[in-house]
Design a protein around this nucleic acid. Sequence first.
DNA 1: CCCGGCAACTTTAGCGCTTAAGTCGCGTCG
DNA 2: CGACGCGACTTAAGCGCTAAAGTTGCCGGG
Lengths: 350, 350
Amino acid sequence: MGLHMGSDARRPTLRDIADRVGISEAAASFALNGKPGVSEATRQRVLQAAKELDWAPHHAARALTGAGTATVGLVIARSAQDVGSELFFHRLMTGMQAVLSRRKYALLLQVVDSVDEEIAVYHAWKRENRVDGVVLVDLRRNDPRPEAVVELGLPALIAGGPDPAGVVPSVSIDDAAAMTSVMRHLKETGHERVAYLSGPISLLHVHRRIESFWRASADLGIADCRSHATDFSAGAGDSATTSMLRGDPRPTALIYDNEVLAVAGVGAIRRMALRIPEDVAVVVWEDTPVCTVLQPALTALHRDPAGFGADVAERLLKVLAGEKVADFEERVPTLVARASTVGERPGDAD
Amino acid sequence: MGLHMGSDARRPTLRDIADRVGISEAAASFALNGKPGVSEATRQRVLQAAKELDWAPHHAARALTGAGTATVGLVIARSAQDVGSELFFHRLMTGMQAVLSRRKYALLLQVVDSVDEEIAVYHAWKRENRVDGVVLVDLRRNDPRPEAVVELGLPALIAGGPDPAGVVPSVSIDDAAAMTSVMRHLKETGHERVAYLSGPISLLHVHRRIESFWRASADLGIADCRSHATDFSAGAGDSATTSMLRGDPRPTALIYDNEVLAVAGVGAIRRMALRIPEDVAVVVWEDTPVCTVLQPALTALHRDPAGFGADVAERLLKVLAGEKVADFEERVPTLVARASTVGERPGDAD
DNA sequence: CCCGGCAACTTTAGCGCTTAAGTCGCGTCG
DNA sequence: CGACGCGACTTAAGCGCTAAAGTTGCCGGG
């Protein structure tokens, strides 16, 4: 029924096209790749034949002759995949995909348990020639990955750099500026005591945020600041919030490094019968659907993971094309002020 | 520094191994693939040489000789990727990966905007020989995809079936049983008027849930039931909740099809100054971190997306191996009763 | 003692495509 | 008018691996 093309219908090859047009395979190849060596007339006939036969280059065959694999790899270490950042990851990936697929590149995904395994995957990919390049995410302090991929000769790009060692180009998010905008906002809304509940310091971006937190504290003259590292879990969010708020004097504003932490924190705040934002203001470092839907809505740092992913992919493709690419800094995340810091403002059209 | 293996160091091939051992390429190939035709002694020497040279089969070369591509594809249509289900998807994927990578399979990912584009991707993958098989997600009513992959001769498996047409095997979740358990729970906690805020009926699983909802309503004798389809958005969750609760008599329990809907709904409920669960009980069809962290914690249907993904991958691999696989039903999601239906029970250790 | 048969290889061919190195006819320049 | 250059192809080789079809050398049976 209809044009039946079962699995047995051998896919067309260059041979078929060549035969149909009455030329050699090589000529057909030239024509299809826009190379010189065929007349325009012939080229057209080849193109036509290719279309009629529904021909497409055999991916493996191409890869075998030296063209790349048209595939980029992404390894997700399970630790980087805690519940708080899954959404971010997912969007990063889909963002990457948007540009990759436009360029006919595929995304190869792998989930592993540790950084060591991750490096093992890079080895395997390289040995088997499975990918042309990889994206490194969630850099840690003293991360062995940049060195590893360089040594392997595996083109790479860091999502969320910059690379301290400077050996792998990166696309990064300006955590310092973002933190500054958060602190400025808190300063402007009258806070003098703010606590930052961060993720694990082993993560490079967390480390940077903490540094900026203290710098901003100094620069803006916010006298009483404290920070506390968590493991990103709800439990940690709850207990850290509780102990912070037991302090005397207690902080008037809390910054949470992710959504899970924040929602747990809000729960703890409520349990202590404190009001948001009158008693404590809350800011979250990631704008997720939950932020807008909670009551009060949470002021959040809004970034664009998909756009980030797109930039990452774009630059990785440049690396693959042999271009030297410089480190790139994303647009600074914007602070979206909501009720959790500014209170209900009826006229707050949005 | 250390064992340097720059990108220029040509990767070893069968030739290298053969030379080193002093046999032919073919013999080496036999040895490495456990085929008869070489003595055990030789086989060992080949294996040894392969290890020493850090050899691995060239993926493209293998694919070219008829072996598969050791890659399975997954296309995500952007519509299926609304904020409420991103988490589910992400976990599904990582679950698939767990089994795929163990078998040396890779996951190829693609994001598209429509079902048509999705089918186009399958065509392209097939033509270019990029994948051995694909996973179909988020089946709709009259979905053209099962037919399409069959016609293409592209092995496939449906995640979240069963396929109404019965042409593609599936791994499915028993929505009917799940819905029944929800309804039974509500009946037991004394509800006689329940409203179901579902996703779009065009989705097969939503359709099934709605059907089961009504069946359960009849079976359990829950007199006053109503259901309302939404687009999964927070806005819809808010407005649908509001209008439901304006009904007279108003429902005493609300079932939400996903997290975003639920959180928005809880917001609306609060705005109407109703108490949870005293005035309205709430159940969510997906257990996410937010459920446990909200106050009151939300009773939720807990499934295991990663386990689901693993099952899907496993069965797809069987299909690829040429085995006939029957439709498979996952363990029924379990209802996790929390404060939003049963109230605060201090003795509720967990 | 010769031949079939078998184990243990080797040779050859080929997967689908690219590319370097021809080949051939034709217009052109000295 | 002949060598030369060039456009338009064709041939051949090869990417790394697999698999079918040889090729040995050795052993046992008739």
